Simulated scan of single mutants.
Amino acid sequence: MPHQLPVKTLAGLLLGFAIQMFPHAASAASFDCERADLAADEKVICDTRSLNDADVKMATTFDILTSLLPMGTRGTLQEEQSAWLKKRQACNGDAECIRASYAERLKQFEESYKGLSRPL
């Protein structure tokens, strides 16, 4: 039986790889924090390092997961992401609500990753 890495270890390796490949993503939110028309949730994310980091992790994980999915299922993931974004935006400026939203979405990504078919 081949040795398999635990999901969290593999996800950590993928994230580390993505940060090295896309270093600009490691230092800023997935959107432009300099825009004048930032929504309340975006302002809090830009002003709170831990939320900014969660946003980068979420965006990077989304990109990685999207690239691993077959073409026919990527649309579903994108629709789920749009629905999640609306949920996050409904938090307005509530940092704890935003934090919980990111934790929930990252958990969903982890479950999606576990369900992927992988070669031996």
Rank of each mutant, 00 (worst) to 15 (best):
L5D: 03
A83I: 11
R99G: 04
C97R: 04
P119I: 06
E79V: 10
Q81N: 14
A103S: 09
Q78F: 13
Q108L: 15
I64M: 06
N52F: 07
M21L: 15
L51I: 08
S30V: 05
L51N: 08
Q108W: 15
A54V: 04
I64K: 02
R49K: 10
T73D: 14
D94T: 05
R99M: 13
L69A: 06
D32A: 02
R74W: 04
A29V: 05
L85W: 05
T61Y: 14
P6C: 02
A103L: 14
G12F: 09
T66F: 15
D47H: 11
D41M: 07
L38A: 02
A59G: 03
S30M: 10
T48D: 09
A59I: 03
A26C: 01
P23K: 03
G72L: 15
M21E: 15
A54T: 05
D37K: 01
E79L: 06
A95K: 10
A54L: 15
G75S: 00
A28T: 05
R118M: 06
L69N: 01
L51A: 10
A95N: 01
Q89K: 07
R35W: 01
Q78P: 04
K114Q: 08
A39S: 10
L10H: 09
L120V: 04
Q78K: 15
T73F: 15
L69R: 05
Q81A: 11
R49C: 06
C33T: 01
E104N: 13
K8D: 08
D32I: 03
E104C: 00
E104D: 13
P2V: 01
D94L: 06
R105L: 09
I19A: 13
E34H: 11
A11P: 00
L77H: 03
L116Q: 02
A40V: 03
A18W: 11
D55A: 11
Y102G: 08
R118D: 00
A11W: 12
A36K: 12
F109D: 10
Y102F: 15
L65D: 01
S50M: 08
I45Y: 08
A25I: 04
E80Y: 00
T9D: 09
I64S: 01
P6N: 07
S82A: 13
D63N: 04
Q81S: 13
L77P: 00
K87Q: 14
L77M: 12
C97N: 04
G72F: 12
R99Q: 12
T61S: 12
K8A: 14
L51K: 09
R99V: 02
A54D: 11
G75R: 04
L106D: 09
T48K: 05
E96F: 15
S30L: 09
Q78R: 12
L51M: 13
L116M: 03
D94K: 05
L116C: 01
E104R: 12
